[in-house]
Computed example of a mutant assay.
Amino acid sequence: MASSTTTDVEKGGIQATSPQEVLGNGSALPVSYQLAVRPSRIGNPGALGLFSFASTTFLLSLYNFQTRGIKHPNVVVGMALFCGGLAQLLAGMWEFPRGNVFGGTAFISYGAFWMSYATILIPASGIAASFTDPKELQSAVGIFLIAWFMVTLFLVVATLRKNIAFIVMFSFLALTFLLLAVGEFSDKLSVTKAGGIFGALTSFMAYYIGLSELLSSEDMAVVHLPLGIIPKRVAPM
């Protein structure tokens, strides 16, 4: 959800106040580009967003798998509102000033997902109670999950030029949404449980990437977790 850099301004590696100083090109840059490139001292919010996403996804995935006989996911509401929702929303808003459009889009999108999903589960919202036919409610939730499967599929395409860890995580997440949607449409518990398994795998990948982001943000970090960087192709001359 967010890519780390080795020369972040907040690490003290670059002490620049202008685009020209950052790139070392004097005043030859176009005015439009000078306005677009602004060094940021905002710390990397990637670990916050990924840990929040992973924790909430892990919790709901265990409920979907009916771990320890749990059949009602309502305990996830608090996590979905404040951890998966608010924390990711804030992480996404901090990603945009850093120039990370992918990270900002992903964090804010899934923060909105968790907030909207929590709203469905809150009795006071009246959303679930407005459906008198349980089948109709399942179909509505299924369509809701299909919409997020589509969003995640688009993000999978965007990860193809990032790294292997992101590709695996978003692919697992897309499968999670798809399986949960099919489980709602077909009313088959086995399919929903399969979605819970892939959701747990997604959360483990998010934890791994989040830890990698956190360690790479520390100057004195001893351990660095590889993400499987995909080398960029150089256009032939």
Results as ranks from 00 to 15, higher is better:
Ser18Pro: 09
Cys83Val: 15
Gly43His: 02
Ser32Glu: 14
Glu218Ala: 02
Phe53Gln: 06
Pro30Gln: 02
Glu10Leu: 00
Ala87Met: 14
Asp219Asn: 02
Gly196Leu: 02
Gly12Tyr: 11
Val151Tyr: 15
Trp148Cys: 07
Leu179Arg: 04
Gly85His: 08
Ala194Pro: 01
Val9Trp: 12
Phe113Asp: 08
Gly69Val: 01
Gly26Lys: 09
Glu184Pro: 05
Pro236Thr: 00
Gly84Val: 13
Gly103Asn: 13
Pro226His: 00
Ile230Ala: 00
Gly103Asp: 14
Gly210Glu: 03
Ile209Trp: 06
Gln88Arg: 06
Leu48Glu: 00
Thr6Trp: 04
Ala47Gly: 03
Gly69Arg: 10
Met150Val: 15
Ala200Pro: 04
Thr56Glu: 13
Ala2Met: 12
Ala140Ile: 12
Phe51Glu: 08
Arg233Asn: 06
Ala54Cys: 09
Gln20Thr: 08
Phe51Trp: 11
Pro236Glu: 01
Val37Leu: 14
Thr17Gly: 15
Ile143Asp: 04
Met150Tyr: 11
Ala174Thr: 10
Ile164Trp: 09
Lys71Leu: 10
Ser32Thr: 06
Leu137Ser: 12
Arg68Phe: 11
Ala91Trp: 15
Gly46Arg: 00
Leu214Tyr: 14
Gly195Gln: 05
Gln15Thr: 04
Ala106Val: 14
Ser3Tyr: 03
Gly111Leu: 10
Ile108Met: 15
Val168Pro: 11
Leu81His: 07
Asp219Cys: 00
Phe166Arg: 00
Ala206Asp: 05
Ser186Thr: 15
Gly49Gln: 05
Lys193Asp: 05
Leu179Gly: 10
Gln15Pro: 02
Ala181Leu: 06
Val222Ser: 03
Leu81Thr: 10
Asn25Met: 05
Val151Pro: 14
Asn64Asp: 14
Ala28Pro: 03
